[in-house]
Design a protein around this nucleic acid. Structure first.
Length: 261
DNA sequence: CGTATCCTGACC
DNA sequence: GGTCAGGATACG
């Protein structure tokens, strides 16, 4: 559940389900979530009204009436599952929020890498985040300022949430393909003209590359992408075989011919 | 900067 | 059995 449009959509479903309502009980159902939200913290959430739900990058914040904040992040697989308190929990539910009206929100995450934590009033629950990936003011000038001091390759830099909040592995690769920039290009050395293309490409990808339901590698999704998960398949612009390389521990897909440094 | 780590499931 | 997976972080 990682790329920005899906987190935005999930946050809106969460908002519709919980804003203005009151928590009856929060429970964890996996050792790592129990560590993040121990029973004593969960207890503090009881009878708290959820006054506002907010998204920043891929982070979701539930602001509570007493000023504390419940912070959730899906990481690789997470999603919200809406159910009722009288129903059995799903096998992959790692935490659940029961509301006083009998509705329940389940943090559903087979891989259990998601996180849910309580932050006291006055504590900032968020790490340093850059401009929102879908912010209209993300343009060539903004990118030039943000990238001018970055000496590393552009693809990992684009995924650095402190540079651009909300851009993930797939969209970073797709945007670079559209802008004809090599993922290995040094961030600070990219020309202003290319940065303008890149800003445009980031917005285009977020608006247009929404997946069909299911996994990203399902066939109906695979065909939605130009490079992601298309190793060995022909580039739609030049026919060259798409290459896959590791970068910062992740797979990067690109066209070695039309994406130059 | 890259790498290892957190986890489980799917797929070869 | 090994490898890979949409993310982020702590570390060297």
């Amino acid at each position: 559940m990682p790329e920005l449009p899906e987190v935005e959509e999930a946050m809106q479903r969460l908002r519709a389900a919980v804003e203005g309502r009151t928590i009856a009980k929060v429970s964890t159902h996996h050792a790592s979530h129990e560590r993040q939200l121990p029973a004593a913290s969960a207890r503090r959430l009881r009878q708290q009204k959820i006054v506002r739900v907010e998204r920043r990058g891929k982070h979701q914040l539930l602001h509570l009436e007493n000023g504390s904040t419940l912070h959730a992040h899906f990481r690789m697989n997470g999603d919200w599952l809406m159910s009722r308190t009288d129903q059995p929990l799903d096998k992959f539910t790692r935490a659940s929020i029961d509301l006083t009206d009998g509705s329940r929100i389940e943090l559903h995450d087979s891989r259990a890498l998601s996180s849910i934590k309580l932050h006291a009033k006055g504590e900032n629950p968020l790490p340093k985040l850059g401009i929102e990936a879908n912010d209209a003011s993300l343009d060539a000038d903004h990118l030039r300022a943000a990238l001018s001091k970055k000496r590393g390759p552009i693809k990992p830099t684009l995924m650095d949430q402190a540079v651009i909040a909300g851009l993930g592995n797939i969209y970073a690769a797709e945007a670079l393909w559209r802008a004809k920039i090599s993922p290995r290009a040094i961030s600070s050395s990219i020309s202003p003209a290319r940065l303008a293309k890149l800003a445009e490409a980031i917005h285009w990808v977020i608006e247009n590359e929404n997946r069909a339901p299911g996994r990203y590698t399902d066939t109906e999704n695979r065909d939605r992408f130009e490079v992601y998960d298309r190793e060995g398949l022909p580039c739609s612009r030049c026919g060259t075989k798409i290459k896959r390389i590791p970068q910062a521990g992740r797979s990067t897909y690109f066209c070695p011919k039309c994406q130059r440094s």
